[in-house]
Design a binder for these strands. Structure first.
Length: 576
RNA sequence: GGGGCCGUAGUUCAGCCUGGUGAGAACGCCGGCCUGUCACGCCGGAGGUCGCGAGUUCAAAUCUCGUCGGCCCCGCCA
């Protein structure tokens, strides 16, 4: 028998008991006549004491190295009163070792297996199994597990059916670059790994599985970020006979359940909602960070006729003047840096003034009539530009930069709703879907599709948490006719529609019910629950920024024989 | 595709700007001492292709160019 208990469970209740423990040697403290060993597994750590009386055991203990795997038999005893370690759940006791076996040794470790160490990412990834042995990483992976289970429990109890959809599927235009898988049976043809199960879940609705979910891997061959991996996990769900409110409230209840079960935190639901248009005006973003309370201020009226030429000119040309407030003072250097930032982001310039004790200071002070305004104390930054989203977006960036230092760290969820269905792609001179082409327009706007599609608002919703897009969904188009019209607007002709999306269109045609759903970035959700910036730390085996796996070393070359079977020839002669 | 930061002992870093002394520190590792430690302590020791390649120079960890790798950002990611 390797163990009667884990390294995290012995307490004063077990005093006097004979136990067997197995685990990793975290540290050996050899005091000469007495040896302490911290034994660790994923449940915790237990202090072992080896006394000199047992000569053979004592000699083995002396030879132990860090991260050796050992098994011990011994007796639990209470520590002397002043030796109790209140930091550990097992801190009241220790195990007096009677027998000690080395189950495995280790060479010199590339790094110390501790939480508070600073190791470079490539070293950690190269030695991922050692990195994952660190308590913090184990906690991350375990929280991920609990979150997975909580989501499954909740959705299952709500009548959702978990259905797997294919990984070997069809490449579709639009969206991200696909990962392709060559076909052996069909020379020159390729499967694609799914960017999401979008089409399948809609087909499942047509099939009558009115509540579907899946916790599923998605693949997108685009450049990485700290919150983007080429393969990532989604909580994907879809419901029939629902409208927007049903999906939003189900999502809210799911998060309420998950945060309660996993973090023991009560979320306040329902979450606030804001339209895309208002989000842009108030926060200058389609994913506002509500951990910052400040809103964008419209100063256009204040500077109308102010005598400040630059701003007046802009206002006369139907431009707008926007402001962002921060309660604190800024140094000359900080203001210069902010100016550089604004210019780098495409802005024309940055002005500022300060309000303190009902008096104005700074660059713009003499152009503002103090009696005309009532502003809180603080530093105000001012930008100006066309009355277009770009100006608001710039103000939004300024807002996040200027106010970053006093964020409110709790979970600030927000629904952003009512997105435009389409947007204009200036480079390609065409209309493209703002979200995806399956989103249902509001019924009273369908008639606008013909005349002015860019005005049409869709039943789309994004869930934003502290400025991070966590989930996105929509009520879908469930009729073939309307779906084809939308495809036509974005420039897909009859032939392409049939070729790329024929199986979806058919499913809609043959009695698809009204339906809608949502998809969560699961890795992001877990990372945010843990307060971690990078999703790499909640994925057991992530890829590097260049999409490599440093541990198993993928991607890699393959045998000529394999290529031949797949009818593939490497044409770049420098390779291989 | 573009920009920024980084690469020196097993690990984390200093040294680089301003080229030249024997390339250092901490942790880890090895040996010794130590019976109440929990980052044990004390003494001693081993350990280096300064990422790789080229160039400049009497001389390169240090300057230049290229290249590989990591991280962050822009583009991209319906």
């Amino acid at each position: 028998m390797y163990r009667t208990h884990t390294c995290g469970e012995l307490t004063s209740d077990h005093i006097g008991k004979k136990v067997v423990l197995s685990g990793w040697v975290r540290r050996v403290r050899d005091l000469g006549g007495l040896i302490f060993i911290d034994l660790r597994d994923r449940y915790g750590r237990t202090q072992l004491v080896v006394e000199p009386g047992r000569k053979e055991t004592f000699e083995i203990a002396k030879s132990l190295g860090m991260q050796y795997v050992i098994r011990v038999e011994g007796k639990v005893r209470r520590r002397p009163e002043e030796m109790i370690n209140p930091e550990l759940s097992t801190g009241e006791i220790e195990v007096v070792v009677e027998k000690l076996d080395i189950l495995n040794r280790t060479p010199l470790l590339p790094f110390v297996i501790e939480d508070e160490i600073n190791i470079q990412e490539d070293t950690r990834l190269r030695w991922r199994f050692l990195d994952l042995r660190r308590p913090k990483m184990q906690r991350n992976i375990i929280v991920r597990h609990h979150t997975l289970q909580a989501v499954r429990n909740f959705l299952s109890s709500e009548g959702f059916i978990e259905i797997e959809t294919p990984f070997l599927t069809k490449s579709t235009p639009e969206g991200a670059r696909d990962f392709l898988v060559p076909s052996r049976n069909f020379p020159g043809k390729f499967y694609a790994l799914p960017q999401s199960p979008q089409l399948y879940k809609q087909v499942l609705m047509s099939a009558g599985f009115d509540r579907y979910f899946q916790i599923v891997r998605c693949f997108r061959d685009e450049d990485l970020r700290q919150d983007r991996q080429p393969e990532f996990t989604q909580i994907d769900l879809e419901m029939s006979f629902v409208d927007m409110d049903n999906v939003l409230s189900l999502t809210e209840r799911m998060l309420e359940y998950v945060f309660d079960k996993v973090l023991h935190q009560k979320l306040e639901i329902p979450f606030p909602r804001i339209s895309y248009k208002d989000a842009l005006k108030k926060y200058g973003s389609d994913k506002p960070d509500l951990s910052i309370k400040e809103e964008i201020l419209d100063f256009t009226e204040i500077f109308k006729g102010s005598g400040f030429g630059v701003l007046e000119n802009i206002i006369q040309n139907k431009g707008i003047v926007l402001g962002v407030r921060s309660p604190r003072d800024f140094s000359r250097k900080e203001i210069d840096e902010l100016k550089d930032f604004i210019v780098k982001e495409g802005g024309a310039g940055l002005f500022w003034f300060k309000v303190k004790a009902e008096t104005l200071y700074g660059q713009l002070a003499k152009y503002i009539d103090i009696n005309k305004i009532s502003l809180e104390e603080g530093t105000y930054f001012v930008i100006a530009g066309d009355n277009k989203p770009a100006t608001y977006l710039l103000a939004g960036k300024l807002r996040e930069k200027v106010c970053k230092s006093y964020q409110d760290k709790k979970f600030n969820f927000l629904w952003v709703i009512d997105f435009p269905l389409f947007e204009w792609n200036e480079e390609e001179k065409r209309i493209e879907p703002a979200h995806h082409m399956f989103t249902m327009p509001y019924e009273d706007q369908i008639h606008l599709l013909e005349q002015d599609p860019l005005k049409v608002i869709g039943k789309q919703y994004d869930l934003v948490l502290n400025g991070v897009e966590l989930a996105s969904g929509s009520i879908r188009v469930h009729k073939r006719e309307l779906q084809e019209k939308i495809m036509e607007i974005i420039g897909l002709n009859k032939q392409e529609r049939e070729k790329r999306f024929g199986f979806l269109l058919e499913a809609l045609e043959y009695g698809a019910p009204p339906h809608g759903g949502i998809a969560f970035g699961f890795d992001r959700l877990v990372a945010m629950m843990l307060g971690i910036g990078t999703i790499r730390d909640v994925i057991a085996f992530p890829k590097t920024t260049s999409a490599q796996a440093l541990y198993e070393k993928a991607p890699d070359l393959v045998d000529d024989e394999q290529l031949k079977e797949l009818h593939i020839k490497i044409i770049d002669q420098d390779l291989g």
